[in-house]
């Protein structure tokens, strides 16, 4: 018998559907015993049909089972027996098993917590690190500024002009370092008090004959500046430098009774 042709004929599909004659059914049964491929084919057809028919079921059939079992009186006379047999089943393996799984669960929880804690620690450390990095960057900037200042102070071509306190402000002082080549001055105003509210220091370049003041600008950041050293552009042929206190925004010409310090550039 050609088994393959037999399978291909479609008879096994009808076998599962239940439409074959009793004789044909017995024939298929015999062939299933002899030929595993026939059995396999029947099993697959059946599995597919079970799945297809099951998918037209729209309800859970569990509760129906309960009713059927009730009707058939399942388990009614066996309940007591089952309990008495079941009791010794709770031996030490059961208890240690439960204990082990509870321990395992607790351990897992602890690990999860620990992990969370570590993650938040890492975050804190990262924040601290970025703060420190900012501080280091700031320090580097300050250091560069300081190095520039030192190089200016050491430069031979720098003209040093001390500005002495004037009149009512005799106890104040300042110093100008004039870098003629770069057309800039560094004003060290450590000896000046903080200007009162609404007032600013204004820096003047002066020629003496005739006396002509030229504003070099106001020092708006005086109070905020820590080292009180200010770099100011100066392209003038200055013969003297002066500092006056002026209303915020500065004045066109210096207010002479508010002249704090004044210094003449030495001739050399």
């Amino acid at each position: 018998m050609d088994i393959k042709a037999y399978i291909e004929s479609g008879i096994l599909e009808l076998y599962v559907a239940g439409t074959l004659s009793e004789k044909e059914n017995e024939e298929v049964y015999e062939l299933m015993q002899k030929h595993p491929e026939v059995l396999q084919e029947v099993l697959e057809i059946e599995a597919a049909i079970v799945k297809l028919t099951a998918s037209t079921s729209q309800r859970d059939s569990d509760h129906i089972l309960q009713r059927i079992k009730q009707t058939l009186g399942f388990g009614s006379d066996k309940d007591t027996k089952v309990i008495s047999i079941a009791k010794p089943k709770y031996n030490w393996i059961t208890y240690t098993g439960w204990a082990a799984s509870i321990l395992l669960a607790a351990g897992l929880l602890w690990t999860v917590n620990q992990n969370k804690q570590l993650q938040s620690d890492i975050q804190i450390a990262e924040t601290q690190q970025s703060l420190l990095e900012t501080q280091i960057a700031n320090s580097k900037n300050s250091l560069e500024d300081a190095n520039v200042l030192i190089s200016v102070l050491r430069d031979e071509n720098i003209t040093k002009v001390p500005l002495a306190g004037q009149g009512n402000f005799a106890n104040t002082f300042a110093k100008v370092y004039w870098d003629k080549d770069s057309e800039r001055i560094f004003l060290d105003a450590q000896g000046l008090p903080d200007p009162p509210e609404g007032k600013v220091y204004q820096v003047w370049s002066l020629t003496l004959t005739p006396l002509t003041p030229t504003s070099l600008g106001t020092i708006d950041s005086f109070t905020a500046d820590a080292n009180k050293i200010f770099e100011i552009k100066n392209a003038n042929k200055s013969e003297a430098f002066g500092i006056t206190l002026e209303p915020a925004g500065g004045s066109a010409s210096p207010t002479m009774d508010q002249l704090y310090t004044l210094g003449v550039v030495s001739a050399s």
């Binding site: 049909i49 079970v50 799945k51 028919t53 099951a54 998918s55 037209t56 079921s57 729209q58 309800r59 059939s61 129906i64 089972l65 009713r67 059927i68 009707t71 058939l72």
Partner: peptide, 28 residues
């Protein structure tokens, strides 16, 4: 096989309550 049978029965009777009744009868 209950889902499969329930599907087949419901497909024939088209009523949930009747299908449940028939299901019980079938398995009993």
């Amino acid at each position: 096989y209950s889902d499969s049978m329930h599907g087949v029965i419901y497909n024939i009777v088209r009523d949930h309550d009747i299908a449940q009744e028939v299901m019980q009868d079938v398995f009993i």
